[in-house]
């Protein structure tokens, strides 16, 4: 089951790390990084059902 409750202990710290990592990148480099990040995290999660749930959710959000 996809966890949609707050789950990150230090939300501000996480967000800063993410944004800082992309601050100086071109759009193409950001896309490359994001793709790798998704793949790395997906592997960590590993559960296809959870991943499918997350993909469906994100796709729906993107459409709005």
């Amino acid at each position: 089951m996809l966890n949609l409750k707050p789950n990150i202990a230090d939300p501000d710290g996480f967000y800063e790390t993410l944004i800082n990592a992309q601050r100086d990148l071109t759009d193409d480099a950001v896309d490359r990084m994001n793709a790798k990040l998704i793949l790395i995290l997906s592997n960590h999660i590993g559960d296809n059902d959870v991943l499918a749930e997350a993909i469906t959710l994100a796709a729906g959000e993107a459409r709005e």
Binding site: D31, R32, A35, K36, I38, L39, I40
Partner: peptide
């Protein structure tokens, strides 16, 4: 374009 970015990311990793 994005499928290609993912594909290349897989290969790079």
């Amino acid at each position: 374009r994005m499928s290609r970015v993912f594909r290349d990311a897989v290969l790079d990793l």
